[in-house]
Design a protein around this nucleic acid. Structure first.
Lengths: 231, 231
DNA sequence: CGCACACTTCGGCGCCCACCGAAATGACGA
DNA sequence: TCGTCATTTCGGTGGGCGCCGAAGTGTGCG
């Protein structure tokens, strides 16, 4: 407890409480690094405005950046930022839907999206549930534990279990999904598995700047083979 | 998934992003209803300013109110608001400590406080850990489950198990503690148990408008009897 | 080396929000 | 019924922040 301080909720709330910055953070929930120019476009602001917003987000510890040539890439500072944004989504008001396109987009977000580094939405919840139904994970007070059967199955799917285990965070844990209101799988296993499902072509990013994912026909068949029940 | 919409993170961020409103929400994390006048004092603003802030918090769904005579009592709209605020605390910057008094206050918050309706801090984590060490709770994919031994023990402590079970939320689940960075116990069992520990005099509220709790000598003895290891 | 691109810095502008005092409204008690 | 208390409403004030264009800086390429 040494060094514990009270925290400044207002400071982080103020960072989030601007539509342009919120749009950028939402785009970064796709888990990829985006350039300042891309984030300017996402937020529909000029480059100078985007630069000032990104400076504030960096200063506040929500994003971090790396220069690469003439480009500066930004990403969320870590899974703890993704988790906090997901948690805040539970009490955020719904955005008014002003067209069929936006309604479809919201539905797509609910079906499959990234929650920073892992799969969320209906598909993410299905993967969570099927991992327990098939005995691949056990629930423990310290979070979820991989079983022997789970190690075999996730290895078969191409998950790098050594890397998953060496990560300095939980291998697997629940993350309450704000669209499904049930837990989806989070943790280093979930992150690695999500990368694999994208590599396998089961999931495809809809665009570079959106966290929405599309489940391919191959992916639907694959998930159903695993026992997932999908609408 | 019908009716799912994208959510407006900026709107909720803007609600939180004011020091006066954040102070009020923090005070309401004690789990008790406070009057508009008390919240004005907590935030060090005039009654009119407080009234305007509370109107915005109500309009945004973060608090709800009830009139009782000439007083209007405000409280958090539900445990989901408490959970979101706790989650946001993980990424909030530390408040600068400008005196020994504030440092002591921050330490006290880390030791024992309410997380809306349940015990958080070192004591909350200890209760969580001891519940598993003693076999009173089992971890399941759907959250924590009470064991037969747990039912006997919590009933012995005075927890109303019928009420705990009939609650429309998880009986017991983990809640990641922002000061300890480990889970403490949340859910209807944790809420009822926390009320009992206060009723038993093991925990005492330090003031009406703070979520900090003081562990009494009786309480320390009682928790240690249960197997809690406390500094 | 010069040009183009990406991004940052800075000054200016306009808007929004927090603040408060005064007045109004509702509840309570003598 | 009147005075007091609690809270809300409203108009006014001032400060802060988001926005942008222009200029500056750093990188890449022909």
């Amino acid at each position: 407890m040494t060094g514990v301080n009270d925290v400044d909720l207002a400071a982080v709330g103020a960072l989030l409480g601007d539509p342009s910055r919120a749009a950028m953070l939402d785009a970064l929930m796709a888990g990829r690094a985006l350039t300042a120019g891309e984030l300017a476009r996402v937020a529909s602001v000029s480059a100078s405005t985007a630069s000032e917003h990104l400076a504030r987000l960096s200063g506040g510890g929500l994003v971090e950046s790396v220069k690469q040539g003439r480009h500066r890439y930004f990403r969320l500072a870590g899974p703890q930022v993704g988790a906090a944004l997901e948690a805040l989504s539970h009490i955020a008001p719904a955005k008014p839907v002003t067209g069929m396109r936006q309604s479809g987009h919201a539905k797509a977000l609910g079906f499959a999206r990234t929650c920073y580094d892992h799969l969320a939405g209906t598909c993410g919840v299905a993967v969570h549930d099927v991992s327990f139904a098939n005995g691949w994970l056990d629930a423990t007070p310290a979070g979820y534990a991989l079983t022997a059967a789970g190690e075999r199955e996730f290895a078969r799917l191409g998950v790098d279990l050594a890397r998953v285990r060496s990560a300095r965070r939980a291998v697997a844990r629940p993350c309450l999904d704000w669209t499904e209101r049930k837990p989806h799988l989070a943790g280093s296993l979930a992150a690695d598995l999500t990368t694999r499902l994208i590599d396998l072509g089961w999931l495809v990013r809809r665009s570079r700047e959106s966290r929405s994912l599309r489940l391919t026909e191959t992916g639907r068949a694959g998930l159903e083979d695993l026992g997932c029940v999908l609408p």
